[in-house]
Design a protein around this nucleic acid. Structure first.
Lengths: 266, 266
DNA sequence: CGTAGTGTTGAATTGAATCAAGTGTCGTGG
DNA sequence: CCACGACACTTGATTCAATTCAACACTACG
């Protein structure tokens, strides 16, 4: 039933976090004793260090904190927390969400390996969202003040971070367009294609993957109800455009799916 | 009929552009002969130069290009154009929009004086949106490569620009929440309150203002039809929460309006 | 092995879209 | 300065996509 490409809880592209926790359960690990550094991280060419040379990467490495992994349901930060760092997802996945005063929270984003989470706090130094692990996950924490200082010394790092923030702006604007003009079916398809290409980016299969989030999460993110999400996944399966086995998704007819959203998608 | 606070075509807080055009209609103006510089601009404490000292502001000033004003309907840039600069709105207003392959364009943002437009091109050096003047407007163009270079030398400038990009991310995420969970009425009210506080930021009246955009623009931005926008403005007027005279809006009952969106708005 | 959370499916309802037919406003050129 | 045409806006009647309400099935974890 599980796809070949993504083992177990989804995506542990860089390390066996379970094993590490067994030997060092609570104590905060020194950044250097995990065997992981930017220079040997598989994600380093899609993360902050793009195009940095060895020496520069070492300087970045020195400010990165690689804390203990996060268990499913653990918070990375909460809404209104003081902003301290941004975080690169190394394995697993997170969602960000806000609690509206009118009760129900709304999911504002999903963060997969190789993506940066926490930029919602940069402007006013207070996190606008909460962020929570959707599965067992590990992250690289990058203290923002230190990132700023280092960016003054490393032009490429400054450039990369501007680009990463720019990409975040473009990504959220894309969602704006989807929410303001797409039908429920187009939203779901666009979402699946988006997840697909984000997995492809880190070398996983774009046509067969595991969704780390619930139907409810997807619904909140896309402005739909759980029932609608469920119904549409079933309908797309009936058309044989996708195959759904619980949270395992196969995209069977890429062309038809792209057709639905108008081809110019992600 | 016109509100006292905003004269004529809306907002010319810094200069009389009409007059300047009369004497120098076509030729591109030298950045220094306009009498405008960052240091004497009324918006300088809500724009890039925040907290810069005189010398630093002068360095920023040297890279800013103050082109001829834009007429209503003129494009600042178009989707797929090469990204070259970001732009600070000095007077007037712009909207950004995308053309979906399925015909109808969708408005992705409105930019008022003191706000920065163009960040949608930072990530991949291609503009993801088009930007067009909604009225006679003037801007400060800041070539991005030069901004990057200068940011390496001026820590405060780098910091400011990170903040500005962070604020853009937070702003767009807020719209995401609005579109994914608010009713049509809540969207309109939230939009009006947002415009109100953006005008307040530049010293204009938060309770009485001119909308530079059409009902159609508002609808596209909020994922509603023109008819719905029109009906709801009428309905809010009937409740005496607002007064509508064409594009002149008065907010009569702030408390009631805030109540509608759940108080935790913008 | 039980139970809480997650997911599915159906029937009824409804908020906003669509379709339609106007009126109002503004900029332009005669 | 006024008349014209193009937009912009409004209002009403009807339709429909997605929500809501409801009941039940699955699954996964302690």
């Amino acid at each position: 039933m599980r796809p070949v490409e993504s083992s177990g809880n989804g995506i542990d592209v860089t390390e066996n976090v379970e094993e590490r926790r067994a030997t060092a359960p609570v104590v905060k690990l020194c950044p250097h004793n995990t065997g992981i550094s930017c220079s040997n991280c598989r994600l380093n060419d899609l993360c902050l260090p793009i195009a940095l040379n060895e020496g520069e990467m070492q300087q970045l490495d020195d400010i990165v904190e690689r804390n203990r992994p996060y268990k499913k349901g653990e918070h990375l930060y909460r809404q209104h927390d003081r902003f301290k760092s941004i975080y690169a997802v190394r394995s697993g996945s997170f969602k960000s969400y806000v609690l509206s005063s009118s009760g129900a929270g709304r999911v504002t984003g999903f963060y997969l390996p190789g993506e940066i989470i926490g930029m919602d706090g940069i402007a006013d130094r207070i996190h606008a969202n909460s962020a929570i692990a959707m599965e067992h996950s590990s992250i690289c924490e990058i203290p923002f003040n230190q990132l700023e200082s280092l960016s003054l010394k490393l032009p490429i790092l400054q450039h990369n971070f501007f680009s990463i923030m720019g990409a975040e702006i473009t990504k959220v604007q894309k969602v704006h367009t989807i929410l303001s003009s797409y039908s429920a079916e187009q939203r779901i398809v666009s979402f699946l294609l988006g997840i697909s290409s984000r997995y492809a980016r880190v070398g996983l299969s774009p046509s067969r993957f595991h969704l780390p989030m619930t139907r409810g999460d997807i619904g909140e993110y896309l402005g739909l109800t759980v029932e609608t999400v469920s119904r549409l996944l079933t309908a797309l399966q009936k058309k044989e455009y996708i195959e759904v086995d619980n949270r395992e998704i196969s995209l069977l007819n890429l062309a038809a799916l792209r057709e639905i959203v108008g081809a110019d998608d992600i």
